[in-house]
Lab assay of single mutants.
Amino acid sequence: DYEVGESVTVMDGPFATLPATISEVNAEQQKLKVLVSIFGRETPVELTFGQVSKI
């Protein structure tokens, strides 16, 4: 299970290999909103559970 505030690594898509912090969890739809730090700015990205891995 994923929790808000948890650190994960993006495994898929254009942000693969980047660390991210979970900002929202939708367990019903198996989706997460995460904040990816790009060029010093936090960018919100919506991903599925399968696109991230716990650190």
Rank of each mutant, 00 (worst) to 15 (best):
S7H: 14
A16D: 04
S23E: 10
T9D: 04
S53Q: 13
D12T: 14
I38V: 11
Q29H: 10
R41W: 10
Q29N: 09
K31M: 12
Y2K: 01
L35Q: 06
E28V: 11
Y2E: 00
L18S: 06
V8C: 05
F39P: 05
T9Q: 10
D1W: 14
G50K: 12
Q29C: 08
P19L: 15
F49Q: 02
E46N: 07
V8I: 09
I22A: 02
V4E: 06
E24H: 10
Q30V: 04
D12Q: 12
V10W: 02
L47Q: 01
D12Y: 14
Q29L: 12
S37R: 14
V10Q: 01
P44C: 15
E28K: 11
L35R: 08
S53Y: 07
K54W: 05
S37P: 05
G40E: 05
E46P: 04
E6D: 13
V10R: 00
E28W: 08
A20E: 00
I38N: 07
G50D: 13
S53H: 10
T43P: 03
I22L: 03
E6N: 07
R41V: 15
E3S: 13
G50F: 11
S7T: 14
Y2H: 04
S23K: 12
K33A: 05
V25F: 04
K33T: 14
G40A: 04
G40C: 08
E24A: 10
Q51A: 06
I55D: 09
E42Y: 11
L32D: 00
D1L: 14
L32S: 00
F49S: 02
V34D: 00
G40N: 07
V34R: 00
G13F: 03
T48Y: 12
I55L: 12
V25S: 03
A20F: 03
T48R: 09
P14F: 07
E24D: 08
F15K: 01
Y2M: 04
F39Q: 10
D1I: 14
N26M: 12
K31C: 08
D12H: 13
P44E: 15
K31R: 12
S7M: 15
S23M: 15
Q30I: 03
M11W: 06
I55Q: 10
P44D: 10
E28R: 10
L32K: 00
E28I: 10
V25D: 01
Q51F: 04
E24S: 09
L47P: 00
I22H: 00
V34G: 03
S37L: 14
L47D: 00
I22W: 01
T9R: 13
V34H: 00
F39N: 14
T17H: 13
T17L: 10
S37C: 15
F49A: 03
V52L: 03
P14I: 09
G40D: 07
E42Q: 11
V25C: 05
L18Q: 08
I55T: 11
P44S: 15
E42S: 09
I22R: 00
L18K: 08
K54A: 06
V52S: 01
T43A: 08
A27E: 11
V4H: 04
D1Q: 13
V36W: 00
G13C: 04
R41T: 11
V45T: 07
R41C: 12
A20M: 04
V4M: 05
Q51R: 04
T9S: 06
A20K: 02
G50Y: 10
E42N: 09
E28F: 11
G5R: 03
I22D: 00
R41F: 11
L18P: 00
S7Y: 11
A20Y: 02
V8S: 00
T21D: 03
V8D: 01
T48N: 12
S7F: 13
Q30P: 02
G50H: 11
T48F: 12
G5I: 01
E3M: 13
P19I: 15
M11L: 13
S7D: 08
R41A: 10
P19A: 13
D1F: 14
A20D: 00
S53T: 11
P19W: 12
T17R: 12
V8T: 01
F39W: 10
L32N: 00
N26W: 14
V10Y: 01
G50M: 12
A16N: 07
I55P: 09
R41M: 13
K54F: 05
A16G: 05
T43I: 15
L47M: 07
V8Q: 01
V34P: 00
E24Q: 08
F15D: 01
G40H: 04
G40P: 03
V45C: 07
A27Q: 12
P14M: 08
G50Q: 12
R41P: 05
P44N: 11
D1H: 14
K54N: 05
F49W: 08
E42C: 14
V8K: 00
V45E: 04
G5H: 04
G5A: 03
V36D: 00
G13A: 02
K31S: 10
E28C: 09
T17D: 09
I38D: 05
K54T: 05
T21L: 11
I38L: 10
R41D: 07
T43W: 15
K54S: 06
T17M: 12
G40R: 03
G13H: 04
T43R: 07
A16Y: 06
E46S: 07
Q30L: 09
E46W: 15
V36T: 03
V36P: 02
A20G: 14
K54V: 05
S53N: 09
S53G: 08
Q30N: 09
K31L: 13
Y2D: 01
I55M: 12
P19Q: 15
Y2W: 13
P19G: 09
E6P: 01
K54R: 11
V45R: 02
S53C: 12
T17Q: 11
E24G: 07
K31Y: 09
S37K: 14
P44R: 11
Q30D: 05
T17V: 04
E46Q: 07
M11F: 05
I22N: 00
S53M: 12
I38Q: 09
T48G: 11
G5Q: 03
S53L: 09
V36S: 01
S7R: 15
D12I: 12
Q29S: 11
T43K: 06
I22V: 11
V34A: 07
K33Q: 09
Q29I: 08
V4C: 06
K33R: 11
K54H: 07
I38Y: 13
K33N: 06
L47R: 01
G5E: 03
V45P: 00
V34Q: 00
K31I: 12
V45L: 12
V25M: 05
I38R: 08
R41K: 13
M11K: 09
V36N: 01
F15C: 06
V8M: 02
V45Q: 05
A27W: 14
F39K: 10
F39I: 06
G40K: 03
L35M: 12
Q51Y: 03
A20Q: 01
A27S: 12
E28Q: 11
K31G: 04
K33Y: 09
L47G: 00
T17G: 15
L18E: 05
T9I: 15
G13V: 02
N26F: 13
Q51C: 05
E42G: 06
V10E: 01
G13Y: 02
V34T: 03
L32V: 09
G50W: 14
T21G: 02
L35A: 05
M11E: 07
F49G: 01
L47Y: 06
D12N: 10
S53F: 07
E46M: 08
F39T: 06
V52H: 00
N26I: 09
L32Y: 05
N26S: 07
A20C: 07
K54D: 03
F49P: 03
S53K: 13
A27V: 14
E28T: 10
S7N: 10
T43M: 12
K33D: 03
P19E: 12
T9A: 06
T9W: 15
F39A: 11
K54P: 06
D1A: 13
L32M: 08
L18A: 06
V10C: 04
P44T: 15
I22P: 00
E42A: 09
F15V: 02
F49L: 04
